[in-house]
Design a protein around this nucleic acid. Structure first.
Lengths: 234, 234
DNA sequence: CGTATGATGTGGTCAGACCACAGGAGGATC
DNA sequence: GATCCTCCTGTGGTCTGACCACATCATACG
């Protein structure tokens, strides 16, 4: 995720200023020409960055002169819409923690319920096998989503299954955004598969507590590895 | 939403082509220079539009020549991230239905549980009163979200409450996106308040079925009125 | 004191020029 | 004939410089 393109550098810079507090809501950005000079890029690159930030709702522009002109920082990293959008664009974290904690709560109860009754884990196991033969990252992650969803369905808790189905695409978005930030995808895929199989083994053995812990680490570990949430040791 | 700016015109044009099927996934866009000539705008305007579409995931760019170069239509209405993004930018509907149905499932069970036991509805009622004195749309909707969330918390179902809390900002995003498409906001606000109070009355009266129906209509009605989901009569 | 009027600075746009890169065409080589 | 290499072409990415329309503000004028 290097700022290979000039406009990305500009955008990143502005976002950094916003995240670090150098820019606050309502502050006025330097003029496009000044920004271009300062960052040593062309004005067109600055404009492309501003355009993106404007569409993202981070900045508002106005023509003319005086205090009300120029590009002004408006919105905040608040709101899932903003967070999702920023995530995809800038690869930043913000409040992904929300959805991650939601996932953890849901999936922990899923595996707990599964570990209780003797269910047939053939379907999720088959998905794992398919994933082993899927080097393509995005295809792998789609199967991964199916795997987690199949667990939810097997749990018999229809509410959780429905919620997770509804969340599927959101979660996939975060997961993909995170994957973009990984250097060594094959290593991560191997790690995920290892954890997946450990969880299935836990369920099969009826070891509720271990299953909870494993799925907790599985989920938070992924987001932590992708730097989407703060790394937490516990 | 006039295409007052040239780059908006370009973006809209491409989005229209995509929506109408004139452009399909994988199709290659004309070269930037050709597009500029065709639409009679400058290349920089085309670039700003392309930049936005790229960030939105609708288009992919690559340098060089040959079939793999140029801007290529790529992503689709799939995924909540894409849906949210398209929604905000293009005002189009796509698959909001997913999150709406999730909300309905969740909130129906919430009011059902509330109608069962005798809980203190003072907190949500107070929120409704505050909303009456809140003409500002966004502030009103923020309170609205708090209202629904307070119901979830009162229900005592911690899983649902957690999920709804996690979803809050996502839902708010959709709700706001929908509100943008309403002509007469005050009328909608009044209608929402009427429905809110009816639901509280249902809960107070212990009328589970009516409460379910009312909250169902309340939620689906809003999204239908904003044309975010197909209008369904039932 | 109030009202025109011009100066100033801003975003919005355009045209033209490079650059780096990917792919294909076509020749050189075996 | 098949293979490799080289050059050419077209593309996005960028920069520069130039206008324009517009909002604001200082100034001059009545």
């Amino acid at each position: 995720m290097a700022d290979s393109r000039a406009w990305e550098l500009v955008m990143r810079r502005i976002e950094d200023d916003l995240a670090s507090g150098r820019l606050s809501i309502g502050d006025r950005l330097p003029a496009e020409r000044a920004l271009a000079a300062e960052l040593e890029v062309g004005r067109s690159s600055v404009r492309e960055a501003i355009r993106v930030l404007e569409v993202l709702g981070l900045v508002r522009t106005a023509t003319g002169s005086g205090p009300s002109a120029g590009a002004i920082v408006v919105s905040r990293p608040e709101g899932a819409m903003g967070a999702l959008i920023r995530l995809q664009v800038a690869g930043r974290g913000f409040d992904v923690t929300h959805i991650v904690s939601t996932r953890v709560v849901l999936e922990e109860s899923v595996v707990a319920e599964l570990a209780g009754g003797g269910v047939d884990l053939a379907a999720p196991a088959a998905l794992l096998d398919r994933m082993d033969g899927t080097p393509d990252r995005d295809a792998f992650l789609a199967l991964d989503a199916s795997f987690h969803l199949s667990l939810a369905e097997l749990s018999g808790n229809s509410v959780i299954a429905a919620v997770m189905a509804g969340l599927r695409s959101s979660i996939e978005g975060y997961v993909l955004a995170g994957a973009d930030r990984l250097d060594d995808w094959p290593a991560m895929a191997a790690r995920l598969q290892e954890q997946h199989r450990a969880i299935l083994a836990d369920i099969d053995a009826g070891d509720t507590d271990t299953a909870r812990r494993h799925i907790h680490d599985h989920i938070t570990g992924y987001y932590a590895a992708t730097n989407l949430i703060p790394t937490t040791k516990a």
